[in-house]
């Protein structure tokens, strides 16, 4: 199966390990990975901040980069959601809306793709310890990918997945919110990290580099002993 990888700008610039793990994992599962070098940011930071015209330019570029793909897979629930939003955002330009719809239809967040399309649940991964999961807002509320990460993590050898109090609460990232409303964002991530610490988990696992960057940033600042991992890294660990 041919998979076109949409890495996301955060993975490209800050979390290349997540990209590498995604590639290796999908290859192990029998996928052939294609990576269009023309890909840039999906436009979400601009879009969410109200710069819709600017975002549309990025979106159109991304559509031309990805429209030939068979499957588009991304290790980010939020960026997958953005691709799914493209047709709605471009609704006033029917041609583009149509092309955006075709792109949206074949876009999958990584764990969704593995469970729904590849129909795999036990990937033979091993990680020893206790983990709790950050279920990102866009991934769960907007994309609707709620169960897939748990389905996959429950099959990881040696890993005990434990509940996280107030797991449905936002971590306070929110893209530019994290700097625009830095003080509020700080309180939100602090509360999130407190719940993570209270869970006594060794690992905090998530499927969105934005949230993870935020949570890890606070964990590192507090010198908390929790290790933050992207789910691709966990599923690719032996």
């Amino acid at each position: 199966m041919k998979v076109t990888l949409f890495a996301t700008c955060l993975v490209d610039m800050f979390h290349s390990n997540v990209g590498k793990a995604t590639v290796e994992l999908l290859e192990k599962l029998g996928c052939e990975i294609e990576f269009p070098q023309g890909q840039i940011c999906c436009g979400q930071p601009a879009y969410n901040s109200g710069y819709v015209k600017d975002a549309k330019q990025a979106m159109k570029h991304m559509i031309t980069v990805f429209e030939q793909a068979e499957y588009i897979v991304t290790p980010s629930g939020s960026c997958a959601t953005m691709f799914k939003e493209y047709p709605h955002i471009l609704k006033d330009e029917p041609d583009w809306q149509h092309r955006a719809q075709l792109v949206a239809n074949k876009t999958y967040e990584l764990t969704q793709f593995i469970v729904q399309v590849l129909k795999r649940e036990d990937l033979g991964a091993t990680l020893n310890g206790k983990a709790t999961v950050h279920t990102s807002c866009h991934m769960t509320r907007l994309l609707g990918a709620k169960s897939e990460p748990f389905t996959l993590l429950n099959n990881v050898q040696g890993l005990e997945v434990i509940p996280l109090d107030k797991s449905q609460d936002c971590c306070g990232f929110g893209g530019t919110f994290s700097v625009k409303m830095g003080q509020i964002s700080e309180q939100m991530v602090d509360e999130k990290v407190s719940h993570i610490e209270d869970s006594k988990a060794d690992f905090l696992i998530g499927a969105d580099c934005g949230c993870l960057m935020n949570i890890k940033g606070r964990i590192d600042r507090k010198k908390s002993p929790v290790t933050v991992l992207h789910i691709a890294e966990v599923l690719n660990s032996q």
Binding site: A7, V11, D12, M13, F14, H15, S16, G19, K20, F35, Q37, Q39, S178, V179, K180, G182, Q183, S185, E186, V189, D190, M213, N214, K216, G217, R218, D220, R221
Partner: peptide, 18 residues
């Protein structure tokens, strides 16, 4: 600064994923 007042910010990877 607003970020790093309360959090670490990751250094960009030396080698981009691409």
């Amino acid at each position: 600064k607003s970020w790093t007042d309360s959090r670490e910010f990751p250094a960009p990877d030396q080698e981009r994923f691409r």
